[in-house]
């Protein structure tokens, strides 16, 4: 049973990812990327990792992707941007992602309502994740903090350089 569900979710993931890299419009590509991440979340759930699935939805498909979408939209300020945004929000645009998300949604409903045990392996609960992360992998958390510090300082420096350049151009 779960094998069929896995193949459906994997097919959605592959199709949407292919669409991400073939779209010429960044906003459309990002919407497909969100669907792709949602299908990965379904696969996580199928593998018996509901916590990872929830994180995938909340952090990737939720926070990070919406941030991306805002940035892409904001970078296109200026004349004609209203026209452009109207083009992005064209109803025809929503059919593809909508249908694919519907497939994932039906799968999820089937898993939760119909057969709650349609997952393989031992379910990994948030408690187990926490115990592993702050037990044997405590130093990995510290390393990750160092990684984020490097990224933070780096983006700060490069962003400031961009602001300098813009200020000089307007002056």
């Amino acid at each position: 049973m779960e094998v069929t569900l896995f193949y459906i979710a994997a097919a959605v993931a592959l199709a949407t990812t292919a669409l991400v890299i073939t779209r010429t419009n960044a906003a459309h590509a990002l919407i497909y990327l969100i669907v792709s991440l949602l299908s990965i979340a379904v696969i996580f759930y199928l593998l018996g990792a509901p916590f990872a699935a929830a994180l995938e939805v909340v952090i990737y498909a939720g926070a990070i992707m919406v941030l991306f979408l805002f940035v892409v939209m904001m970078l296109n300020l200026g004349r004609g941007s209203v026209e452009q945004e109207r083009g992005w929000l064209h109803p025809r645009m929503w059919i593809g992602p909508g249908l694919l998300t519907l497939v994932l949604f039906l799968e999820m409903v089937f898993m939760i309502a119909g057969n709650p045990l349609a997952t393989s392996g031992v379910p990994v609960t948030p408690k187990i994740v926490g115990q592993t992360l702050f037990g044997p992998y405590l130093l990995a958390v510290e390393l990750a903090s160092m990684l984020l510090l490097a990224a933070l300082i780096g983006s700060f420096h490069l962003g400031r350089r961009y602001m300098h350049a813009r200020r000089e151009m307007t002056e």
Partner: peptide
Amino acid sequence: LLAIATFGAITMVETTHFAAFLLGLEILSI
């Protein structure tokens, strides 16, 4: 950033675990 990159490099040389290896590599690369 130079100090952080060095930190990433010395992490990579004292590990036999994929997770620490990848984290060290990324600290260095970023």
